[in-house]
Simulated scan of single mutants.
Amino acid sequence: MSQKQGVILYGPPASGKDTITHALAELDPRYSQFARLKVGTGKSAGYRMGSEEQLRQLEAVGDVVYVNARYGNTYAIDRPGVDAAFAAGVPVVHLGQVDGIRALVDGYPADWSVVLLWCPREVTEQRSAGRGDSDTAARLAAWDATREDLGTHPGTTWDLTVDTTTTTPQDAARLIDQLLAQRAGAPTV
């Protein structure tokens, strides 16, 4: 019996979560970014935009696995959304909070591979400015919060750690794909 496999990419803003997810999908189309439910404004690409009422309904029936607020918005990982993502292939969930990792691993049974993506604060600043973010200051505050989050959860274990300043997105994708193959007991190339 093979268990469903998923990937959690944890890291500060601009650490490469989107870029590595894209490289994973190019490597194997079964990989796709999990679109969290977003209640709020701003960027909608990569999210399922929802309403406060939708979120309340999901919470009322116990279908919210994890919820957090950042950048003035609310983001939720919901059971029906994760179910749909597994039905489509291998979900890649982006998180910036260790509590979110724990909630997902403990709250949704699957074989989750947890990957820490890291880059220095100044790299987050350069990448954020380079991609035209209008909220670079907020992203730097989120970088600081991620660093603090790591410090308050020293027992967190990672299946893989990737320094995105020295590892190409394609190499990171290959490492993640190899990790999942090893965990599934499949031969690796």
Rank of each mutant, 00 (worst) to 15 (best):
H153Y: 13
Y108F: 10
A173E: 07
L37S: 01
G155E: 15
A23N: 02
L180H: 02
G100L: 01
A35W: 04
Y47M: 09
L9C: 11
L55I: 12
A137E: 11
A110R: 08
V39Y: 00
T124I: 08
D28P: 00
A145Q: 13
E52Y: 07
D106I: 13
W112E: 07
W143S: 03
L37R: 07
E122T: 14
R147V: 09
Q126V: 13
Y108S: 04
E59Y: 08
G155A: 13
D18E: 14
R56G: 06
I77K: 01
P13E: 08
A173K: 07
P109G: 08
D28G: 13
V67P: 00
R70M: 15
V114W: 04
R183P: 04
L104V: 13
I77G: 04
S32C: 10
V92Y: 01
A88W: 11
V115E: 05
G155C: 10
P80T: 08
W118V: 07
A142F: 06
R174Q: 15
K17I: 11
M49T: 12
P12R: 11
E148T: 13
G46K: 01
G72I: 14
Q182A: 09
R131N: 02
V7F: 04
T161V: 14
V115M: 11
G89D: 08
L180G: 00
Q182F: 00
G185C: 00
V98C: 11
V67Q: 15
V92P: 01
I8P: 01
D133R: 12
S51Y: 03
V39C: 07
L140S: 03
Q54K: 11
V98E: 08
L37Y: 03
T157S: 15
R147L: 11
G46M: 05
Q97I: 10
T146F: 09
A138G: 11
Y47C: 05
E148P: 00
T136P: 03
G107N: 02
P12E: 03
G96M: 03
R70H: 13
T41F: 11
I20N: 01
D163K: 05
G96E: 04
T152K: 15
A138Y: 09
R30F: 09
Y66W: 12
H94F: 05
G151M: 03
V82L: 09
A172L: 03
G16I: 05
G16C: 02
A129F: 10
P12W: 01
D144E: 13
R102K: 12
K38P: 01
Y47N: 00
T168W: 07
L9P: 06
G89H: 07
Q97V: 10
V82R: 05
A87P: 00
R174V: 15
T41V: 13
R139A: 10
E125R: 14
A173H: 01
A25E: 13
R183Y: 06
L180T: 06
A145H: 09
W112R: 15
P154V: 13
R102S: 05
Q5C: 15
L37P: 00
D106W: 04
L9T: 07
Q54D: 05
W143R: 02
